[in-house]
């Protein structure tokens, strides 16, 4: 009995200690990791969506508090007008969470372009959503107020062959991003005024 109690106590204390240590490290590195992700994962996608912008969209960003979470928006300035934003939404992919960024023209609520950021989809199949840039161009010109679907579900996006679930997940996540955008549009327009000079 005594040994039993000792085992429980030691394991509990050890787990508590490691939990505390991990929480401390997590808090300590959170901002730094966010910066690194911006630079290496999101940065290239943002630059691709806002090709030809006259500013640095990774630097020109603002945050809006949406319920419990803070959402980051990246601003693209074209022809001297700050009328395009990128936002990211995440949803459940085939494996793990999937991050999708969409660039929106605020004047007509249409998607300029989209891109997949973080994912753990199957290499060669689902991963094509990120690696095969021709697939994601199907999103260009779509309206953000309407639901985006693959052709199997009665939509307009041709699914990647062999990766229907991933394709559907990207559509769902892009639709989510559209909903967030529509909900926050007044605030976004307010913030964008600061960037037009």
């Amino acid at each position: 009995m005594r040994e039993m109690i000792k085992m429980v106590v030691v394991l509990t204390l050890l787990s508590a200690f490691s939990g505390g240590l991990l929480a401390a490290v997590r808090v300590g590195t959170k901002d730094q990791i966010e910066n690194q992700e911006l630079k290496f994962v999101k940065g290239p996608v943002i630059m691709e969506i806002f090709k030809g912008a006259s500013n640095d969209p990774v630097q020109d960003r603002f945050k809006i508090v949406d319920g419990d979470i803070e959402r980051i928006f990246f601003v693209g300035i074209f022809d001297g007008k700050a009328n395009r934003v990128i936002l990211e939404a995440s949803g459940a992919g085939f494996a793990d969470t999937l991050g999708v960024m969409i660039g929106i023209d605020v004047d007509n609520d249409k998607i300029i372009s989209a891109g997949v950021t973080t994912h753990k989809e199957t290499p060669g199949l689902g991963a094509k959503a990120k690696t095969d840039s021709s697939w994601i161009t199907q999103f260009s010109g779509m309206s953000v107020t309407k639901e985006i679907k693959i052709t199997n579900d009665g939509g307009k996006i041709n699914a990647i062959s062999g990766a229907t679930i991933t394709s559907r997940a990207v559509c769902l996540t892009a639709t989510d991003a559209g909903k967030i955008y529509s909900r926050l549009k007044p605030q976004i327009q307010e913030k964008l005024k600061d960037f037009t000079k």
Partner: peptide, 13 residues
């Protein structure tokens, strides 16, 4: 996990 977080923060590539 400490190493993983540290590497993510300071040597992302």
């Amino acid at each position: 996990t400490v190493v993983e977080l540290a590497m993510q923060a300071y040597a992302y590539q």
